[in-house]
């Protein structure tokens, strides 16, 4: 699964730490997602979409390997 978290974060101008606080996870989790090392749960994906006021599909998308 791909995501454009880093881009969305840049647009909103918040750090990994701040985003982590907003969705109540550790900064490592945000970092692992941005590096494509971790696929978040549905709950976390929905929370992140809520922070950026977008649909989940606008932030997360399937890859060919999925």
């Amino acid at each position: 699964m791909k995501n454009n978290l880093r881009v969305e974060r840049a647009i909103k101008n918040i750090t990994q730490e701040e985003l982590a606080k907003l969705v109540k996870v550790s900064r490592q989790t945000i970092n692992a997602m941005e590096l494509g090392k971790y696929v978040p749960s549905t709950v976390l994906a929905l929370k992140i979409a809520k922070v950026f006021e977008k649909k989940v599909e606008d932030i997360f998308s399937l890859e060919e390997s999925d």
Binding site: A20, K24, V25, S26, Q28, T29, A32, Y38, S41
Partner: peptide, 11 residues
């Protein structure tokens, strides 16, 4: 638990 015990830490 870690200070922030979340789903990635669980993994």
């Amino acid at each position: 638990k870690e200070k922030t015990e979340d789903e990635y830490i669980m993994k």
